[in-house]
């Protein structure tokens, strides 16, 4: 909005109704009004079917060169072709192995670190500035360094993943741990529980659902970093397969791999949601 119109509006304001005056007939609804279940399901179906239909219509219309936008049928064929040849499973296995190892390492580092930061104010003061800074360094910018340090093998790829996840997960874990109510800690102390006992029997169970939530958010980032790591100097993995397909202009294969990446990500997300729902039943 320009300064001129803002001034004009301000000038017009006195002519409007008295402040707080109600306009009859105007219906006010809360922002978060509930949607009927049927409508909600229809919207969910539309959320998936809409873009797929648009994709199908656009490629069927012939307006776009199939090299740029392959049809859904062509993508399906490319996918089944890669599955039949076995390359899809090899690449998928390589990518899943990397996220499995890298994410496990990141969790093993960040959860104890974040827990300590959240529970002990001195650890917070010591670690938060440096981790808060490191978090803003883009992990992808470390790829050249990681290759110099660790070579082009597995180590540099796993390291990228750890680097991309560990700082975020540390800070998010610390936040969750800090949210344990002070009253709960005080009551525990009056019940004879020492610091170690309070940490293990009160803070940890209270924070666990939140820590799993943090992991779920960061697992999405980890999955992204696997693919990024494989775009450069890899000889296997879904990211590697994308660069291969690019060289031969096989956009149908690129699309098929993107679909697989999306589905795996969704599976990771749903799995962690289920784990969280089970662990955090008491919070419901």
């Amino acid at each position: 909005m320009t300064g001129r119109t803002a001034a004009a509006e301000a000038g017009a304001a006195p002519e409007a109704a008295a402040p707080g005056g109600s306009r009859p007939g105007r219906r006010i609804r809360p922002l978060n009004s509930a949607v009927p279940a049927r409508v909600a399901w229809a919207l969910r179906a539309l959320s998936v079917a809409g873009p797929v239909t648009a994709w199908w219509a656009l490629s069927a219309s012939g307006l776009v060169d199939p090299t740029f936008l392959p049809s859904p049928a062509a993508v399906w064929a490319a996918g089944t072709d890669m599955a039949a040849s076995g390359s899809l499973w090899t690449d998928l296995g390589a990518s899943l192995g990397r996220i499995g190892l890298g994410f496990l390492l990141a969790v093993l580092i960040s959860v104890p670190l974040g827990f300590t930061m959240g529970a002990l104010p001195w650890a917070q003061a010591l670690l938060e500035p440096v981790i808060g800074l490191l978090r803003y360094l883009p992990a992808s910018a470390f790829i050249p360094l990681l290759i110099i340090w660790l070579g082009i093998g597995e180590a540099s790829k796993v390291a990228l993943l750890v680097l991309g996840v560990v700082f975020f997960n540390t800070l998010m874990t610390a936040d969750v741990v800090r949210q344990v109510p002070r009253r709960l800690l005080e009551v525990s102390a009056t019940l004879g529980a020492g610091r170690v006992r309070v940490a293990s029997r009160v803070v940890f169970p209270y924070a666990l659902p939140g820590m799993i939530d943090a992991m779920r958010v960061n697992a999405a980032a980890a999955w992204n970093f696997v693919v990024v790591a494989e775009l450069i100097a890899a000889t296997s993995g879904l990211g590697y397969r994308i660069t291969r397909a690019q060289r031969f202009l096989q956009t149908d294969r690129i699309f098929a791999i993107l679909v697989v990446i999306g589905l795996i990500g969704l599976t990771i997300d749903i799995t962690l949601r289920l784990v969280r729902a089970r662990v955090g039943r008491w919070a419901a």
């Binding site: 109510p181 709960l184 005080e186 009056t190 019940l191 009160v202 209270y206 919070a283």
Partner: peptide, 16 residues
């Protein structure tokens, strides 16, 4: 210490 029990206004129970 456990010889002085404490109850707050809000229950502050262990919800799990």
């Amino acid at each position: 210490g456990p010889e002085r029990g404490l109850v707050f206004q809000t229950a502050s129970l262990y919800p799990w």
